[in-house]
Design a protein around this nucleic acid. Structure first.
Lengths: 152, 152
DNA sequence: CATTAATTGCAAATTGTTTGCAATTGATTC
DNA sequence: GAATCAATTGCAAACAATTTGCAATTAATG
């Protein structure tokens, strides 16, 4: 069911050196596990779970706990963005330089295929919601769910 | 920080008998625990976690596992809707009769205050997203996050 | 009130994620 | 390149949310 690259990615793949450079700049070590993880993320434009990342790595190349720690670090540095498809598992996607990674997905409820979506919630409406309720710094989390062509 | 009833609820509180009736109609028993749970939900217009529901109940009135099972049943019957605030904990809200419970929230990232939001993602745009990708039965999950007046 | 299937409590199992700690390893300095 | 030191890792144990097996209990029904 699950197709391999129906995903249209808007941002181009970052160089590994760009990524490690950013880590190094923040006074973090470029270790084997980290390079391997970044390498996986670079080649997967979809959001990946920690377990999926772990499965992509060679046997014994990196402990699962290390992946959790790496994702936490990369998240803090704004290099990956965490997505939540409502199934209680965190997923991560690499964020382009200067980008904040804000975007949404359309997920097949049958086969879990993921399509990246360009559309976003209208800014004016979000602004109005914020104002009406006196909230500041309002953002949103938005994902679409449906049945993909192959699963209908 | 957390205010008690800033939440504006659109739907009016359902009678307990209405709720139990629905359960009975589906050939399920009206047990002490279930009545107690429905009673809690009836009086709380916000999404509640299983643990919160458990805390509201009197000591020993109902096991936590029973609440998990009840929410699963009520969910299947469409009597409660599950919400996901991205913190890995499921929250549930009673759904009005005939309603599908689809709506969104604005959540304070500091104190977790929850405001129910009337706005929704534009149907035309959602339709277009579905068509463009050949998906059917598309819905969405949408929540807003920001800092509430009290926490600024 | 007896019967029966649904439901419960309790404990144990699962799953995703975090953490303590001793051993290892980058980066830096000489 | 070797010494040094803090950052990082693997591994196991700890956690938290949720699920499940099973024997005991209970609501509905006649």
């Amino acid at each position: 069911m699950k197709k391999d690259c129906a995903h249209k990615h808007t941002h181009q793949r970052q160089e590994l050196s760009t990524l490690t450079g950013r880590l190094r700049r923040e006074s973090h070590k470029i270790t084997g596990p980290r390079a391997a993880i970044l390498e996986i993320l670079r080649h997967h434009p979809h959001p990946l779970t920690n377990k999926e990342i772990h499965a992509e790595l060679r046997e014994g190349e990196c402990d699962l706990a290390t992946i959790y720690r790496a994702m936490q670090l990369l998240g803090k540095l704004g290099m990956v963005k965490r997505f939540d498809f409502g199934d209680g598992v965190a997923r991560f996607e690499l964020v382009g330089e200067g980008d904040d990674g804000h975007h949404h997905h359309l997920i097949c409820t049958q086969c879990a295929e993921v399509v990246e979506i360009a559309e976003c919630f209208p800014t004016e409406v979000e602004q109005r919601i914020a104002n009406q309720n006196g909230f500041r710094s309002v953002t949103h989390r938005l994902e679409f769910f449906g049945v993909c062509p192959d699963c209908q």
